[in-house]
Amino acid sequence: MSDKKLRIMVAKPGLDGHDRGARVLARCFRDAGFEVIYTGCHQTPEQIAASAIQEDVDVVGLSCLSGAHRYLFPAVAKLLQEKQAGDITVIGGGIIPEQDFQPLYDSGIKALFTPGATLDSIVDWVRTNIKPRA
């Protein structure tokens, strides 16, 4: 009787202590039946990538409200690639201007959610696009 669960990591890269949104999302993913690994604030991309691999997650959800997303999000995606973990999907959210979307998509970020995105729409995106491995 196989019981495949989706594992998702919610992480806050960089110098950004505003984690209300990340915690609300963590809770929301929990209620959707996912196993959510929350790593707290002020994480380096290196810490996030290493943790994602140790935890064998399907998705890493990055939250950034500091404006440094153009550097931090691609850094996480790149590190995962380098560690042969490019199959782990990276998504992001936060205060992200529209003109930054394309460069972020180009760097390997699969989806972006900005203020106004409903919790349901985020969970639905994960449900539709991510299948638990195993």
């Binding site: 929990r30 209620d31 039946g33 196993e35 929350y38 790593t39 290196e46 810490q47 290493a50 140790q54």
Partner: peptide
């Protein structure tokens, strides 16, 4: 969670200095 089957796994927050 006994209701949704989901979970928040937050123990490693305290151990992140060893992540790398």
């Amino acid at each position: 969670s006994p209701f949704t089957g989901g979970a928040i796994l937050g123990d490693r927050i305290r151990m992140q200095r060893h992540a790398e």
